[in-house]
Nucleic acid binder design. Structure first.
Length: 206
DNA sequence: CTTTGGATCGTCT
DNA sequence: GACGATCCAAAGG
């Protein structure tokens, strides 16, 4: 007996073995699940390890970014701004620290539980429309750092439920960084209300 | 509707 | 000691 979560199969680990910039748009419309809570991924950013000044791994290995080097399919969770958690899908070969930041979800299941954990969200569309918001909504935190997302056994998974990525995703610069700002490594599902507000800017119109 | 600034602490310099 | 892959409430138009 499965729980009330969506049907689907874990994303094959091999699909995550490429560079973050190649993998990121293919994760659009996949489903991130934790327990009974799930949402469809509609906005992502790629971080390119040692070759990307905006990556946490740019200056090499540290206790904080250790999981980024652990190979495709792991979950890298980090704490920032003194109060927020954010979640990444580690990709690339072992040792390269490629990672895809999950920036927004469309809530699918467990919406009541999400609302209980995010009283500040007044609309369902506000539950998961930001990288720290979705972690709060799904209950993802530091204890989840390093878990395997695609073994099919874990509490947190990335599933393919048969919905293909958009043929022509939105694409633009990353949010909240102060270096490497010229790289357009953010992708989103066009015309999707749950994409984070800051990124619903100029480039969405096409 | 938009803009602004406060919260808050782990991490690395 | 400074800053950050953010969020939210409050104030102003």
């Amino acid at each position: 007996m499965r729980g009330p979560g969506p049907e689907g199969t874990p994303v094959p680990r091999q699909l995550l073995a490429g560079d973050a910039a190649s993998v990121a748009p293919t994760l659009l419309n996949k489903v991130l699940v934790k327990g009974d809570r799930a949402g469809r991924i509609v906005e992502v950013e790629a971080y390119g390890g040692a070759h990307d000044p905006a990556s946490h791994a740019y200056r090499g290995r540290s206790p904080r970014n250790e999981v980024m080097f652990g190979g495709p399919g792991l979950l890298y969770v980090y704490f920032t701004y003194g109060m927020h958690w954010c979640a990444n899908v580690v990709c690339g070969p072992v040792g390269e620290a490629q990672a895809v930041l999950v920036r927004a979800l469309v809530p699918l299941t467990g919406i009541e539980a999400m609302q209980a954990d995010r009283p500040a969200a007044r609309q369902v569309r506000d539950l998961c429309n930001g990288p720290a918001k979705l972690c709060q909504a799904l209950g993802i935190g530091g204890l989840d750092n390093g878990v395997d997302l695609v073994s099919g056994e874990g509490a947190i998974m990335v599933l393919d439920d048969g919905v293909a990525p958009p043929r022509r995703p939105g694409n633009g610069v990353r949010i909240g960084i102060s270096v490497a700002t010229e790289r357009t490594m953010r992708w989103w599902v066009p015309d999707e209300p749950c994409v984070s507000k800051v990124s619903a800017g100029p480039l969405t119109g096409t």
